[in-house]
Computed example of a mutant assay.
Amino acid sequence: MAEAAAALVEIDPADVLHFQGPYDKEQASYVKITNLTDAEVAFKVKTVTPLQYSVKPNKGTLSARDSTTIIVSSQPITAIPFIKRVFKIEYIALAEAINKEFPFSQINQDKIDFVKLQVEYDQPEYGEQLVQEVIRTDPSSYILFSDVLTEVQTCQLFVRNLSNNPVVCAFKANYSELIVLFPATAILPPRGSHTVEVSLNPMRQAPYGNMVVNIQSISVADAVDRNDWFSETNKRFIAKRKLVVKLSDKQTPLSPTSPFAPTILALETPNIITFKGDTKRVPLEVYNSSDELVAYKVLTTISGRYLVAPSSGRLRKHEIVTLMVERLHLDLNPSEVANDKLKVISRIVHPDLEQANMFPSEHKELFAESKIIIAFEPEPSKKPLPPEAFERGAD
């Protein structure tokens, strides 16, 4: 990897991306990519936490010996993430790409190289330091309800302890008369989890300010005052996070038995597949670019016209699967198939739902989705050569 990186591009920093406080505000860090060759090089930056980080530009092309600076912005944080965050920078020489229009499609996978940058939040030598966060929540950013305000709505918040020590958590909403959390406190065993029921009471209209669920957590091993876990004495050991409560007329509330949360687009697919001439089957590669287990399902816009095998399944982190798309009718007019598409829906598999139906019809809004155009390219007609083509030319 190091030799390939030195041959094509130089990335600065090469292994660790540092952020410096204060962390209660958005902070930026910079990555410089330099093309070391005399040919064009394409690059793409990936992260599995797009809600936390903004990357501009996240992809592009560098001409010979050119360079660019990428701005990576981190949203405000109140605790250092327990799981290390990583950016993946992919790059490829365009001259070697089979598909130059989409250089990072799966057909070019063998020619794509990459480096990973680990995120580090630098702690100040003096003054207040951030505590290490030891919990993970699902959903991780916001809790979703519908805008039907005349009924009680309920969903579930899953909290997991990522450490090897017991952790105490406290849950409190800023609009406590509207949002009820049960239980309000919980002790999570090492590597254990807990479920909090979140209820939204009926209201005449939504409040003007944001509705927020505040979560505080502290490791039992760090607590000085064990009679009052969240006292001033323990303040410097307390991690905090916020989940925004959102109302939407397009998205329905989560049911009490479905710990589904909005997911990121973890799968990569081509934008188009092409049937040439009388070709009956074409391959379709699907790549899981995340570090999670992802379930997928392939749908067609016209039933009975195509067969996809396998049409559903699960992909481990960074796994690639090749599906076969078969057209069942070869005698259709081009106008009949002009708008045909495949739709790939996916979501990260929640650990508590290993055997559950991942794609219930009542929660379509929670799936990640990508569409693939189905194109048809006729074989060139073979016309007989004219007689003059066989005449011997004059000397």
Rank of each mutant, 00 (worst) to 15 (best):
V119K: 03
S303Y: 02
L328M: 14
S311H: 07
I135P: 09
K44L: 08
V41Q: 03
F260I: 13
V244L: 08
V180G: 00
K250P: 00
N214L: 05
E128C: 00
Y30N: 06
V55K: 06
A79V: 06
I320Q: 10
F158Y: 15
E90R: 14
L323Q: 14
D352T: 09
Y296V: 08
A184L: 00
P253Y: 00
V213W: 07
P351E: 06
P22A: 05
F43G: 03
K382T: 14
A170V: 08
V167T: 10
K297E: 14
E268H: 13
G313R: 05
T34C: 03
P190C: 01
F260L: 09
L17K: 05
Y30P: 02
V16A: 02
N161G: 09
A394H: 04
P283F: 07
H18Q: 12
S303L: 01
P283K: 10
Y287T: 08
D122Y: 00
K250D: 00
L144R: 01
I187Y: 02
R305N: 11
L188G: 02
K88D: 03
V286P: 08
Q109F: 09
R241S: 13
K240I: 07
S217M: 03
A295R: 09
V167Q: 02
R191T: 11
K382S: 12
L157A: 11
F260P: 00
S312Q: 13
T301F: 01
K343N: 05
D24H: 15
E40D: 15
Q355R: 11
V213M: 06
I345M: 05
